[in-house]
Each structure stands twice: as structure tokens, then as C-alpha cells.
């Protein structure tokens, strides 16, 4: 860890950890109301809010500590779990948006069509050519369909669009 004047990154980190700490504190306060059938007349360790309280107190305490560290300009080391150092934020968000679309399309047009469309979109997003993207979409859709739907018998609901047309 290194310290210095807090930059934009530290303020972002502080905002994130503060949001967690605040959410944790709110849940701690509201815990009895958020537990259906909560019985406060038991010994503290038998109450169903006891362990959530312990867990949330870690979130509040260490979320607060992390916020304080970030505001003081303490720079945390990069996590070695995922290397995001050279990645583009808009592209990652666009990828997540395509998955969101995938969920909607799957309900609307069915799994194979949705997979083909979304893999094509994702492949285009990675700057593959149209032909290569189409080929990848067709091959991947066919493979996934054969492995999961035919092989592992994963059932997908029929598309509501097909039902509506019928």
C-alpha cells in the first residue's frame, strides 16, 4: 500500500466501499423487520438475526475502514484475481448489456435464435469480420445446443413470440 493525496481512483473506491458500509448499516437496523416471523424474545444467539448481524457488522466496520483508508489517499494493491489494467470500461459494459439482451431474447425468440444473435453481436464487438462472426455464432450455437439441450436435456421454455404468431 502507498499513501498520498487521494486521486479519482481513491474517491471511486471510497464511494464504493462507503455504499457497502451504508447498505450494511441500513440492513442491520432493519434486520428485525426484514425477517418474516422474527421473534425477539429469544436469547440473543438463538435469534435468526444474530448471524446476519455479525456478518453485516464486518461489512460496516471494514467497509468504513476501507473508506477511511481511500479518503486518506492509501492506494490499494491491484487485485491479482483479474487483470483489468489494460481493458476498456465501455467495452466491458457493452458486453454486459449484450448478456442482458440475451436474457430478454431467450424468453422472446427461444434459446437457439437468441444464442446465435448474441454470439454474433459479441463477436462483432470484438472486431471479428461479419463472416467470421456469423460462422462463430452458427458453430457455437450448434455445439451448445447439441451438448446441453440434446445431450444434457436442459429444457428451455418455448419462445413467447412463436406462441404469439401461432
Amino acid at each position: 500500500m502507498s499513501t498520498g493525496k487521494p486521486g479519482a481512483a481513491q474517491w471511486r473506491e471510497a464511494g464504493f466501499t462507503f455504499a457497502f458500509a451504508l447498505a450494511g448499516a441500513t440492513l442491520m437496523l432493519l434486520a428485525p423487520r426484514l425477517i418474516q416471523g422474527y421473534n425477539p424474545d429469544q436469547p440473543y444467539y438463538a435469534r435468526s438475526a444474530f448471524f446476519p448481524w455479525l456478518a453485516l457488522s464486518l461489512v460496516v466496520l471494514f467497509g468504513g475502514w476501507s473508506t477511511w483508508q481511500a479518503v486518506r489517499g492509501v492506494r490499494r494493491e491491484l487485485s491479482d484475481e483479474l487483470d483489468v489494467a489494460h481493458t476498456s470500461v465501455p467495452r466491458a459494459l457493452a458486453g454486459a448489456a449484450v448478456v442482458g439482451l440475451y436474457i430478454l431474447l431467450c424468453a422472446a425468440v427461444g434459446y437457439p435464435a437468441a444464442t446465435c444473435a448474441c454470439v454474433f453481436l459479441l463477436a462483432r464487438q470484438t472486431r471479428l469480420s461479419r463472416a467470421a462472426s456469423l460462422l462463430m455464432a452458427l458453430v457455437l450455437t450448434a455445439t451448445l445446443y447439441l451438448v446441453f439441450v440434446v445431450g444434457f436435456k436442459v429444457w428451455f421454455a418455448p419462445s413467447w413470440l412463436a406462441g404469439w404468431i401461432r
Binding site: L27, I35, A46, L54, S57, L58
Partner: peptide, 21 residues
Amino acid sequence: LGLGLFLGTVGIDQTSSEHRF
């Protein structure tokens, strides 16, 4: 870690059968 432990408490409490969060 606290967040993970908390998420693990969501659902029916196995001791009291109360519905948590």
C-alpha cells in the same frame, strides 16, 4: 467476507424456519 457471510443467511433459517431477507 462479511458480505459473503451475509448473503449466505438469505432464505429460510434452518433453526427457526423464519424467512430472512
